[in-house]
Nucleic acid binder design. Structure first.
Length: 115
DNA sequence: ACCTTGACATTGG
DNA sequence: GCCAATGCCAAGG
């Protein structure tokens, strides 16, 4: 029968495509996953993902480049650490999207997603 | 089934 | 740049 892939699965798959050393945003991931306007769902899915270590969740930021976690919270520090490990510069809980922001060509993404 | 909470985005003051 | 209002909708209570 038809596609039985859940929204959560599509979102996790899309997040997994963000290259090392680059970052994206909740809104962009939602769009690329075929769920326009549902950025909040992306955050929800990441928050409830049981195996976060298998996903590059640290590369997903707010549209303005700020981390979604409260500044100086434990998760924020962990995310910052993981980003710096891949040479992404984080200053004041924020990444320069102009420099590290990444957004694939839609056709290219669909290829990678196996469509 | 209703209400509140969120790892959000966009627009308008 | 900051704040409020809206739209969004799955999960938890």
């Amino acid at each position: 029968m038809g596609e039985s892939e859940t929204n959560a699965e599509r979102i996790r798959r899309t997040v997994g495509v963000i290259p090392i050393g680059r970052v994206s945003s909740y809104g962009v991931i939602a769009d690329l996953a075929g769920l326009p306007g549902r950025a909040r769902l992306v955050g929800h899915v990441l928050r409830h993902t049981v195996t976060p270590s298998l996903l590059p969740w640290q590369r997903v930021l707010r549209s303005d480049g700020r981390l979604a976690f409260p500044a100086d919270s434990t998760p924020a520090r962990k995310q910052t650490s993981r980003l710096q490990d891949e040479d992404v510069v984080v200053i004041n809980g924020r990444v320069n999207m102009q420099r590290f922001g990444w957004q694939p060509d839609l056709a290219e993404l669909l290829m990678k997603l196996g469509c």
